[in-house]
């Protein structure tokens, strides 16, 4: 279903859209993280980032597979990942931004991991057995992503003058993309009504509290909320970066659609 098609109305249509949004977030950030492969600041951190990237792509794969099953149109996870255009992707704009420096990558991972953790803690109560089971399973990995990124925020913030400056810059640059995480649109409201969605507005306060505690412990400043907040990712509006990234990510699959691992 493309953004320009009809809006979802039935339970299954809403669930499909909801799953695809979650999956897109994880695929796009996972792909971004994978760009660190071979470029990490240390071998061990290179592995850690690649691990997190693989976890996130794995989560996306499971969500896409279930979404495709709910849709019942004969598509599979690869169709959803590789044969949709940028306007059909519903990920948060924050996640498609280029990797920046290590501080930027860590700050984004931390902001998103706190959000994911709170979100999945709700989704594991979803009134849909397969969905809730998936959320519960993935939550364990998310907790690890949170721990890893949190520890790095503390170390970079309370580290050298340069690391402090860089991660503060990262939080300042990323903050305008954080508002979108808590926007509730029609799909979110219908998902809540059907018993499988989370009330994002309710997560905001807890997110802000958790994030602020760590940022302050890291001797950093929490950026101001009364600033311009970007949005639009959920309806297929993206920054210039997503298209370039998809071109690279989807090129092989589109050029050789029948290629298989041998």
């Amino acid at each position: 279903m493309s953004t320009l098609d009809q809006k979802p109305t039935t339970r299954d249509e809403v669930l499909f859209e909801y799953l695809v949004r979650l999956a897109d977030d994880r695929l796009i950030l996972g792909q971004r993280l994978s760009e660190w492969c071979g470029h990490g600041p240390e071998l061990e951190e290179d592995l850690a980032l690649a691990n997190i990237a693989l976890d996130m792509i794995g989560h996306a794969g499971a969500l896409y597979t279930y979404a495709a099953e709910i849709e019942g149109q004969g598509r599979d996870e690869d169709d959803l990942a590789y044969f949709r255009d940028d306007i059909d992707f519903k990920n948060l704009q924050m996640l498609e931004q280029p990797i920046g420096d290590f501080g930027y990558t860590i700050a984004r991972q931390f902001l998103f991991s706190v959000y994911s953790y709170l979100l999945y803690s709700e989704l594991k109560k979803a009134e849909d057995e397969q969905f809730s089971g998936m959320a519960d399973k993935h939550l364990k990995e998310i907790r690890y992503h949170l721990r890893h990124s949190r520890e790095w925020v503390l170390r970079l913030g309370d580290g050298t003058e340069e690391s402090h400056r860089r991660i503060q810059d990262a939080f300042d640059d990323l903050w305008m993309y954080t508002g979108e995480m808590f926007d509730m649109d029609e799909v979110d409201r219908m998902a809540v009504e059907h018993g499988f969605g989370a009330d994002l507005k309710q997560l905001r306060e807890e997110w802000k509290k958790n994030v602020s505690e760590v940022i302050e412990e890291a001797t950093l400043k929490v950026p101001r909320d009364d600033q311009y907040m970007a949005s639009g990712g959920r309806t297929g509006f993206h920054t210039e970066h997503l298209g370039h990234m998809l071109a690279q990510m989807q090129f092989l699959r589109r050029s050789y659609p029948d290629a298989e691992w041998t």
Partner: peptide, 20 residues
């Protein structure tokens, strides 16, 4: 073995390198 700046990161790096 792993390289790490401190104990907590050593534990995480060890997990990522040897126990996943």
């Amino acid at each position: 073995s792993v390289h790490a700046p401190d104990a907590e990161m050593a534990l995480q790096n060890a997990r990522d390198t040897y126990a996943r």
